[in-house]
Design a protein around this nucleic acid. Structure first.
Length: 275
DNA sequence: CTATCCACCTGGCGGC
DNA sequence: TGCCGCCAGGTGGATA
């Protein structure tokens, strides 16, 4: 479930259950996910009060007492549920339970285990290996046409690949890159260095709109994955191109949406609308 | 430094 | 029903 809008949705769903709440215990059911969990992971977290939750790109950052930060990335298949009464027996891929003093269980499930759950000290967050190279937050003022142009300049890759690169802009993934390029009428095959200021302005504006709409829709739901509160996101009903290969373009109604592979990943676009 | 490729995993789906 | 190949919302690390 994991591009910026989905992570933001998770953050918002977790906030009322976690902020200003003490973790009573943490249960891990394997040694790690993509990386091993830190030594004494459960001991370091147990008894600590959660101060607040933020998001950086696709990462959730949970700030606790004693300047501890819990870093969570959902990878390709990670999802988080909030469980209260009648808590089910953990399933095969329920790797971590965070249990609060209010009796709420936050359960991390990740079949493919590409996710990351680790700890850092607050003072080292900015220089953390996983976070230090992440580009501007697309919904912040740090993201604008001049900044984007500069990053796209002098690089020899397609605009599709550039926007997937978290160093250029934070939080976009395969869905929202395809959707943003469609709405910006830019071909995914165009080279990033050939994007002019006008198009960069358009891209910045559209990326903000697409992400905001998706957040307001509670993210996109693929494969029936649930949000932490059990609800489904519904932005997938507003896709123009993602997963629509072979369907007539809903905008021009002249050509079919194409699927191509770029850098090993699917790209969906309309060859008539996007140039 | 950059661009490319591989690796890491499991599950779901279509085709036979 | 079963097996097979392919595909999937990501990204760190090795390589050239």
């Amino acid at each position: 479930m994991p591009e910026l809008p989905e992570v933001e949705t998770v953050k918002r769903a977790l906030t009322p259950y976690l902020e200003n709440t003490v973790l009573s215990s943490v249960i891990t059911r394997r040694k790690g996910l993509r990386f091993p969990f830190p030594d004494q992971f459960s001991e370091k977290l147990s008894g600590k009060r959660i101060i607040n939750i933020t998001r950086r790109g696709k990462y959730l950052l949970i700030y606790l007492e004693e300047d501890l930060v819990l870093i969570i990335h959902l990878g390709m298949s990670g999802h988080i549920r909030v469980l209260q009464k009648n808590i089910p027996i953990p399933g095969k891929h329920d790797h971590i339970d965070f249990i609060t003093q209010k009796g709420v269980t936050i359960r991390y499930n990740d079949p493919r285990r590409f996710g990351i759950v680790t700890l850092a000290k607050r003072e080292f967050i900015r220089s953390h290996k996983l976070l230090k190279n992440i580009g501007p937050e697309p919904l912040s003022n740090n993201f604008n046409a001049v900044v984007l142009m500069k990053k796209l300049n002098g690089r020899n890759l397609t605009i599709k690949c550039a926007l997937l690169d978290q160093k250029i802009v934070a939080g976009l993934g395969n869905i929202y890159v395809s959707e943003s390029l469609f709405r910006s009428r830019i071909s995914p095959k165009r080279l990033s260095k050939n994007i002019g200021i006008k198009k960069a302005e358009e891209l910045v504006k559209i990326i903000r709109i697409v992400l905001t709409e998706a957040i307001n829709a509670g993210g996109s739901t693929l494969n029936n994955h649930r949000r932490p509160d059990g609800k489904l996101g519904y932005f997938q009903h507003q896709f123009f191109v993602y997963g629509k290969n072979g369907e007539l373009c809903g905008h021009c109604e002249k050509v079919k949406i194409k699927k191509i592979i770029q850098a090993g990943r699917s790209t969906f676009f309309c060859s008539n609308c996007q140039r």
